[in-house]
């Protein structure tokens, strides 16, 4: 592990943290265009964050230390996740620290803290959001694991850099199983990131809310951290998707010239995925909470089919 690796790691981590609100701004902008609205500025998420950071913190009387710790823990988890996922290069020192399963565990840690903090004040909305979030996560996790199974089988590894290596260096081949896994992954991404059709990120004060309901009692810098972490999570999920299904362009080990190229590729891919996400969100309607099991069951079936097809025709 040389100095340059550490530098690369640092750059990628900071880049992800800095860019995450921009990605969210881009998705919002695309969505506004698609829905014939005039879009807010791309930089709007930054302005919101800055405003929130400057505001005073209002805490409920009975709020405990858990509520105050949770935003920091959640944010730190997402930063760590952003350091692990190969966004521009594969030889990151931290990427050894976690394979995809450990990443899932990391997300779970953040989620549990968020769900616990939501119960802290003891409002009806908070507990409602908390239980819905945990439910969706419980159903999404098997599907997500099955999604990871197929690339892990092809790459003989659950570590993201190795999977990227397998796909970028091997001969170009059609993997029908990966197509299935990709569709399933998108569905899980929608569910895990509180997007339409599972949750609506732009609702507030609605009985159907999930993610927002958990954040109701937050204000000031706590809310800023939570929102930022949420944007980071979306970006990390996109990055995982890119690493698994569109890995071309990510810089190989010791390929320093490839890094700027990888940056450009990353921006293009993120923009494309963001636009696609906005399109999906425009086309779909939010579903009832008890339709979610069916939705995620479908994702699960697709992932299982993908895996079976890998055994059937690719092995």
């Amino acid at each position: 592990m040389s100095f340059s690796h550490v530098l690369l790691q640092l750059i990628q981590g900071l880049l992800a943290v800095a860019l995450a609100p921009l990605v969210l701004g881009w998705v919002n902008q695309c969505r506004a265009w698609l829905q014939n609205r005039s879009a807010p500025s791309l930089l709007q998420p930054y302005r919101v964050l800055l405003k929130l950071l400057r505001k005073e913190i209002v805490l409920a009387h009975n709020a405990s230390w858990l509520l105050r710790c949770a935003p920091y823990v959640v944010f730190a988890c997402m930063v760590l996740a952003a350091c692990i996922v190969p966004l521009v290069a594969t030889d990151l020192p931290f990427s050894l620290a976690a394979d995809v399963i450990a990443l899932v565990g990391l997300f779970a840690l953040a989620r549990v803290f968020m769900a616990l903090a939501a119960m802290d004040v003891g409002t009806a909305f908070g507990t409602l959001g908390s239980r819905r979030e945990m439910l969706i996560a419980a159903l999404a996790e098997p599907a997500l694991l099955m999604v990871f199974f197929t690339p892990a089988l092809i790459g003989h590894s659950t570590a993201l850099p190795n999977i990227v290596e397998t796909f970028t260096t091997g001969p170009l081949q059609l993997y029908p199983s990966m197509a299935f896994a990709a569709v399933a992954f998108i569905m899980v991404l929608l569910a895990e990131n509180a997007r339409i059709p599972v949750d609506n990120p732009s609702t507030h004060l609605e009985l159907t809310m999930v993610h927002e309901a958990m954040l109701l009692e937050y204000s000031g810098r706590h809310l800023a951290l939570m929102d930022w972490a949420h944007a980071l999570k979306l970006m990390v999920y996109m990055a995982i998707g890119i690493a698994l299904f569109l890995p071309w362009g990510i810089a190989r080990p010791h390929d320093w010239l490839g890094v700027p190229l990888a940056l450009i590729a990353m921006v293009v891919k993120l923009m494309a995925i963001g636009a696609g996400l906005a399109l999906l969100e425009t086309l779909a309607a939010k579903m009832r909470i008890f339709k979610v099991p069916e939705f995620l069951g479908m994702a699960f079936m697709l992932a299982v089919l993908g895996m079976l097809i890998h055994f059937l025709v690719e092995a």
Partner: peptide, 17 residues
């Protein structure tokens, strides 16, 4: 597998879906 084989595999997968 040769490319044709891959295409057939893909179509088979779609059929199963």
């Amino acid at each position: 597998t040769p490319l044709v084989g891959q295409i057939i595999n893909l179509l088979a997968a779609v059929l199963l879906l």
